[in-house]
Amino acid sequence: MTDMLAIAADWKAAGEDVAIATVVETWGSSPRPTGSQLVVTKSGRLEGSVSGGCIEGAVAEAAIASIESGIPRLLDFGISNEQAWEVGLACGGKVKVFVEPLV
């Protein structure tokens, strides 16, 4: 089983700017369970997943923004979200993702 936190630590040790995204809450049919993680670097490396792929882009973007601001953020994705057309979950599920820089 791949350990996302080990990857995050390795990338950080290698001098990368790293952020971690974690699924903290789900409703309905969301593809990845709570605790699923995506590790992102400012340079564009990416490992793990927080969805079936539909919100990964938006989460990676927010993760990189958290590296730049140094501030963690709680993201809310779902069919009721105004972003639904761009990054809504095709499955109709809802998911909250916490993104944070590794400092």
């Binding site: 936190l5 971690i20 590794l102 400092v103």
Partner: peptide
Amino acid sequence: MRSEALADLQQ
């Protein structure tokens, strides 16, 4: 996440 907290967790 602080690197120290991550190290504690991994330990």
